[in-house]
Design a protein around this nucleic acid. Structure first.
Lengths: 214, 214
DNA sequence: CCCTTTGGAGAGTGGCACTATCCAAGCACG
DNA sequence: CGTGCTTGGATAGTGCCACTCTCCAAAGGG
């Protein structure tokens, strides 16, 4: 299909598609002549993933490019490839090492991981952006006056551990590694809003049970 | 304290504080003379909440103003006040009613709520932004080629229901309604990243268990 | 053959959180 | 009693970034 058709089928304007091509988010079409290129379903699919990343995941274009590069990198092992793609994902709050609270909170996080028995997470430590984001956010909460400790987080983490099992089960349904990675990225971006919505719905339900609707 | 001190203690520039004053996010200080105003700890606390909303929660300034207005509105009942504040929170993807998939997905959501026995959520229906966001996001996922049905979500929702109980328990620790609402808003903005980080850590752990680190 | 479409490239737009500049009116220090 | 600084307040401007407009030469194609 040609650019115009790709645009029509994806609902993305040709100007924007050209922009993504320029930014290296989308592979160029197969050149058919000096002024013509051909796009296929893979382009359409990738385009939708790009939109999901940028519009829903609010991932900056530059970051999206890195994520997608990992998605396409077939030289990586399964777990690394998956992790590498996800680790590029938004992890804005970086811990402020000059803040004395950071060390305190970091110790609290490690204590939590120990009690959970999450040995991998402890081995990876601050290598994992997730570990750093968790620490940084807890520091922020503390400064805001809402300290969170390992005791509080433990039951949450245990619940989320159960969720992770479901996540990985779902991921394993995809046959090829490429599809697995893509599904993981899409899941990180699109499934998280689903979870947060469900959580808020659950909160509404629980709140109504306790206080009634008034 | 004066504007300069408020700025210094909060780490927010005076220019930005003036901007928040102008936008009505922050109540004006107590005027002490034509060119002097006094700020107290309440201002400092509110300022931190504003920063959390805008910087971490990425809540647009206009939305933050509405959220904070509800936080301050003491005429509302407890649950409504809490809900009203949270319902103003980011709920970007609105369902595209012209899309035939929307109706299909909406039915799927209702089926899910029925099986969960969440009667409040069903009664509120699309009145709740959370219901609409859930629907809209599921439509997006479907278009991306990752359909999610009630069967898949059911176990997730049940886990999140358990999380909601923990959430409400935590909330009840705050003595006054005002603090409860503020804690709820702060929790929505700051606790969600904590949960998502924990979920990703849990995924790393589970992934490593299944595939090893390579 | 001529009007439309194509891919490509650079400059421009719009939204939005923030910020630099001004200004007049105190305050503070010599 | 100045005089230089600071204050709160208003206005216009900045920077960022995703996107879009405009223009171009070279095909298509009816």
């Amino acid at each position: 299909m040609r650019l115009a058709e790709l645009s029509e089928r994806s609902g993305v304007s040709t100007a924007t598609i050209k922009y993504y091509l320029r930014e290296g988010l989308l592979a160029p079409g197969h050149r058919v002549s000096a002024t013509q290129a051909d796009y296929d379903d893979a382009h359409l699919r990738r385009l939708r993933l790009i939109r999901a990343l940028i519009q829903i995941g609010r991932v900056p274009v530059a970051t999206a490019r890195q994520v997608l590069a990992h998605v396409d990198d077939e030289s990586l092992g399964q777990t690394i490839r998956l992790g590498a793609a996800l680790w590029e994902m938004p992890h804005e709050p970086e811990p402020d090492e000059s803040d004395p609270e950071t060390a305190v909170v970091r110790a609290e996080v490690d204590r939590l991981l120990e009690r959970l028995g999450w040995s991998t997470a402890r081995e990876l430590g601050t290598l994992s952006p997730n570990h750093r984001v968790l620490t940084a956010t807890m520091v922020r909460l503390k400064h805001l006056g809402y300290p969170v400790d390992a005791d509080t987080l433990l039951p949450y983490a245990q619940e989320l551990g159960r969720l992770a099992v479901l996540d990985l089960d779902r991921l394993e349904e995809w046959p090829t590694p490429g599809e697995k990675v893509e599904a993981a990225v899409a899941g990180a971006v699109l499934f998280e809003p689903v979870l947060l919505s469900l959580r808020r719905l659950a909160q509404e339900e629980e709140s109504a049970r306790r206080f009634g609707l008034e």
